[in-house]
Amino acid sequence: MTEKIFLILMVVLAFIALNTQKLRRSVIYLGIFSLVSSFVYLLYGAPDVAIAEAVIGSAISTVLYLVALKKYRVFTIYYTNANYNQIRDGYIIRGRAQILREVESFFVRKEMEPQIIYTTEDYKKVLAEENFDLLIHQDYDQVRLYGNAEDYQLDALEAHMCENPNELLKTEFIKFEAGDKN
C-alpha cells in the first residue's frame, strides 16, 4: 500500500515538474521527486542507490539547476491592492485571476523569470523605497502599472495589453525616468 501511494506520487510530481511555466517551481518539485524516489529505492531493497540519490538530489543537483536558472533575468513585480488590509489566500487568487496571470505568462513567453511579491504597504511607500521593475496597483477595476521608462520590456508589455484588452479592467501605464526615483 505504501509503495503504491509513493509510486503514484512520483508520477504526479514528474508530470507537474514538466508542465509548470515557472522554472523555479519545478526545481522544488524535482527536489521532492528525488526525496520520494530515494524512499522507493529503499522499499525495493537498494540502499546503495538510495544513499546516492539522497546526497545528489538534495545538495548537488539543486545547485546545478539553480546555476542554470541564474542565466534568466528575474523580473520583480510588486502587487498592491487598495481595498485589502490583510493578505489572505483568497486575495492572492483573485488578483491572479484578474491581471497577474496575464502579465506572468507574458514574461514567461519572453523567457524571463517573474517574481511576484504581494504586499499590503501603501503603493507610494513601495514606489519611494523599494527596488522593483514593475509595480501593479489595483483599486477595484482600476489598474495602474508603474515602471521605468527605459525598460523596453515594459513597452512590449504595453503593446501586448493594448492588443488584447481586458473587458473588466481599465489598465493604465505610468512611466518615470530613471533619475526620478531617488
Partner: peptide
Amino acid sequence: VALAYSVLGFIGTILI
C-alpha cells in the same frame, strides 16, 4: 540514509 538526509537536507532548502 536518514542520517544523510538529516545532515545534508537543509542545504538545498537554504539555497533555494
